[in-house]
Design a protein around this nucleic acid. Structure first.
Lengths: 200, 200, 200, 200
DNA sequence: CATGAATGAGCTTTCATTCAT
DNA sequence: AATGAATGAAAGCTCATTCAT
């Protein structure tokens, strides 16, 4: 069935795209990796570009769902933010392959990248909504909500990215290391770096 | 004189590389932009790869110097961190073209990207040294210094990047907007997002 | 029933082939146009090549019949030639789509084109037989019969073709224009261009 | 020098294009035939299409010059027409390879073919101007000048084409055969086919 | 030092054809 | 008989790099 091949191709595509980036990835290799003929990819996707975009949308949808779901436990924005951070780090580590794409392919002036940034914006929006609620309920300090959200997103993704690249075998990032990263991020986001009283 | 042509080429290269990314940038276009013949580039640089690396080192040296310099005013890590954040935002906004490269070309398994990440690591080290001193002097909360530094670097660069891309005419990011971004970042880094007393 | 599908496919094929020429025509498009699946075409015809040849034979047979029929009124070669010219012009105009193929796909060294030229030769033979009879009966000037026939065929088909292409809406070539073209051709064929007495 | 390679490529291109038609001609083969690298063709021409168009313009210019030149001997339209016919037949036979293209690639709806037909129209215009003068001077019968010119063009080109394809070794069309064809055409054009008195 | 014409490996995409259903 | 997903050979085009001038 069609759905089957499509997922096969997606699976191969994330890996190859993440490994080499969009430009250096060859359709030949993706096809080989997916165990289908090159023509098959083109039967399902009009072009390399379209495959990439479809892939991104597909994966992005998944992460959005997860992020939304992980906040449904509670109405407390503080807890929600904690869940969010935890989930983001965990997801990005586990899908390190996708994380690479997320960050590395988002910046550029090609049209594909526009669309991609729009998708990232949707992710950031999820963060922003929590921030907004937190501020409304006077649980969070008032701030430029959009800036704060982007900063958090940047902090999480670059931190994870750098970890993923430090040790290319994604698998080998231990549970422990993950929770350590979550802690680091949480600490910064929750109380900042500077000891309060000292703020000169 | 050689130095002259080299700078001409560098100038053209940042722009073209930033506009299209490494892979999509064509030596032809860089040459045309620089007003030299394609052969001339190859006279000065062994390859596209080498041109890119040389360019990165050149630009990276500049930003490192600036960051180091901006901390020499004072010994107070709190102030130093503030200066650092301000300088990074300002520099990245003003060299938006270079900022794009910084984030977008760093992640990948090609050797050039390894080297590039090593350079980024040097930048982060500057942050880390301040963090370290801050913690030693009990001005900053104890934390995983490396993680914190990467988080800060990620927050700053993604925030700026997203701004640069929102409005491609770098020029039009006002002084005001810059200091607003600095504020947003500082607020997060200095006091975090969550109002302290509430931390359940 | 098979006959039905076959005609459906033929109908679609003439149009597509005429519109784009043999090489640029895609089996996909023919199938879509015919309202059948691509596999169905291959069920009825071994290959694109074979479909084309079968189509040509089918259509060529029709025009040959018409030309032969239109000469059966009379034994007078002069009248027969007139009928022939009239019929050819009319047929080609009305089947402009087929006329394009007739001229444009005939010249080349591919085997299909050999066979196609053989079919054209059969058309020209019909003209040639009239010419031959006309000369035998001393109604026509003696001449190289084959050359004369090809010249007439060339004159008619290129004249019509150029008209068909001038205005792609075949429909819009008026009855009047048709008879004007017939006149032009007849005039040249019957009396030539140069005023007789002057022939130096 | 550039001019040199360009002509080399042109030379190879006419042959290959004429042999297989535009679509079946491969850039690889043209390059091999011209003794240059494929890239070299693309250095001089943006695409296969552009190579073809440039080639056509180049060759068409030559034939136009020849036709115009061959009429400059005399002011007598009767003689001019004779010269024209002779020259056209001779040129097309000698450049049979180009003649194939002239006729076979002119009919189609691709844009390239539009432009091509415009060029053919220019050729026909040369004939038409002679016809026009002949009629003005009452040496030729009045007629639809455009139709007559196209008919003559069609007669000549199809006659030659059919000869060229009968015997693919262009060389082997003898001087004698050429003048025989000229005679056949002239006879038809000058006095028509039907013996005058008989015209019922 | 500088040039730019020439190169060719490499990549994306197309499309006739096949075959399991 | 009919279908359409899958195939893969083949072709057009790109572009980093070289080198004779």
């Amino acid at each position: 069935m069609s759905q089957e091949k499509t997922e096969q191709i997606f699976q191969a595509a994330v890996e190859i795209f993440a490994q080499h980036g969009f430009e250096r990835s060859k359709m030949d290799e993706i096809a080989r990796h997916a165990g289908v003929a090159k023509g098959t990819i083109y039967y399902h996707f009009k072009s390399k570009e379209e495959l990439f975009v479809a892939l991104m949308n597909n994966r992005m949808e998944k992460i959005k769902e997860m992020l939304n779901r992980c906040m449904s436990d509670t109405d407390d924005p503080v807890k929600q933010l904690r869940n969010l951070l935890e989930m983001m780090v965990t997801y990005l580590v586990q899908n390190g392959t996708f994380a690479k794409l997320l960050i590395s392919e988002a910046w550029g002036s090609v049209e594909r990248q526009w669309e991609f940034r729009a998708r990232i914006r949707e992710l950031v929006d999820i963060i922003e909504r929590v921030i907004h609620r937190g501020i409304s309920q006077e649980r969070f300090y008032p701030s430029n909500e959009s800036d704060t959200s982007f900063s958090i997103f940047g902090a999480v993704s670059v931190l994870v990215l750098q970890e993923v690249f430090r040790d290319p075998q994604t698998q080998s990032i231990s549970e422990e290391r993950i929770s350590q990263m979550v802690d680091s991020i949480e600490q910064m986001v929750y109380q900042g770096v500077v000891i309060s009283g000292y703020q000169e």
